[in-house]
């Protein structure tokens, strides 16, 4: 079984982004970029399934500008076997990415696609579900445990209030939650080896997908700031403020 893992290049999670003064977006020039944290978890899970013998090949995919190749090299260094870069400078929204991935799913016929549950830039939490819909496959989102047995996969999902276990027929789509695993660190020898692994380059047109954005961003603004708070000297002062000033208890 092949496993396909889509990965996204995003602003590093430690960076506090700034909104551009003209309100057209956030300033990501000269900002550190890295692999979306949930996608690292997805790659790690795919590599672990391969190590357990449940998968034969792990293919990493990334859609976007040429620098996405760096993200794919990271995926290869973690343990993916080969990579596909769908190169475009166009703004890609989740529906477009899902369509590109659906075309790749049709071509590569993976047994499992593992995605991150959301990207930390657009915070959409849509692509996996959309891919499942477009490919006509079952989905298990927010996975904290994945077990493949025969032609079935059993997934434990994090839901409001607790956990839920689903069983799906393969092929299937899984999106990762934080607790699924702890991604390994990439080692220098693996980074060197990753440079020799195959990386295929395709264009959206090769896949027959129109990636034109469907939503128009009119404006991006800073969120309303909170007014500066105060420090209180001790517990008594805190209780007094909460009772008499804020009146919340």
């Amino acid at each position: 079984m092949k496993i396909l893992v889509p990965v996204k290049r995003v602003v590093d999670y430690n960076v506090k982004v700034r909104v551009k003064a003209d309100g057209t977006g956030v300033d990501i020039a000269n900002v550190k970029m890295s692999m979306n944290p949930f996608d690292e978890i997805a790659i790690e899970e795919a590599v672990r399934l391969k190590e357990k013998g449940a998968a034969t090949e792990v293919i990493a995919v990334s859609c976007g500008v040429s620098q996405c190749q760096e993200t794919l090299r990271t995926a290869l260094a973690i343990g993916a076997d080969r990579a596909i870069h769908v190169e475009t400078d166009a703004e890609l929204q989740p529906l477009a990415v899902a369509k590109l991935l659906a075309a790749l799913v049709a071509k590569e016929a993976p047994g499992l696609v593992i995605l991150g549950k959301q990207a930390i830039d657009d915070d959409a939490n849509q692509t996996g579900q959309m891919l499942a819909a477009l490919s006509g496959l079952p989905q298990a989102t927010f996975a904290s445990k994945v077990e493949v047995t025969g032609d079935k996969v059993e997934v434990t999902r994090e839901i409001d209030g607790g956990l839920e276990v689903l069983s799906m027929s393969l092929p299937a789509i899984v999106t990762t939650d934080l607790r699924l695993n702890e991604p390994r660190y990439v080692t220098l020898p693996n980074i060197m080896k990753a440079k020799k692994k195959p990386l295929e380059n395709v264009k959206p047109a090769d896949l027959g997908v129109d990636v034109a954005p469907r939503l128009k961003t009119l404006k991006v603004a800073e969120p309303a700031g909170r007014k500066a708070g105060i420090k209180v000297a001790d517990v008594a002062a805190l209780v007094d403020k909460l009772k008499n000033e804020a009146k919340v208890i």
């Binding site: 982004v17 956030v26 929204q93 830039d121 915070d123 128009k216 603004a221 969120p223």
Partner: peptide
Amino acid sequence: AQLSDVTKVVSADTFERPIYAGNAIATVQS
């Protein structure tokens, strides 16, 4: 397309939603 986590209805086709962990608010038209 889908709009996630809408925080404000501006009009029947325009909505606000937070991006980048709430560090920016995007006004989006569908």
